[in-house]
Amino acid sequence: MGRATLFLAREGYRRRRLADMARLLPLLGLALFLVPVLDAEDGLTAAMLIYLFAVWGGLIALSALVARLLCRSGAMDDAVRAPEDAP
């Protein structure tokens, strides 16, 4: 086993950037979910409610996209299955 290679082929590179995306997504979510705090005085408004659920839905859709791409790219191929399934 040599050291990990420094430069990856296109496929491996893509997979890493996908993992980066998966890591950055919650940070984006955190930022968006903290927006209501900036508007704390106005409090609950219908617009705020719609904003929150729109952001929420958007994050879910993005997360679904990333998860699907990650699975397809083979990043989950080393997944450990339940022990009883193992030979």
Binding site: A19, G29, W56, L59, S63
Partner: peptide, 13 residues
């Protein structure tokens, strides 16, 4: 519900 949402979309962490 926002807290768990963040943890789940950040499942890779």
């Amino acid at each position: 519900y926002l807290g768990p949402t963040l943890i789940f979309i950040g499942w890779w962490w």
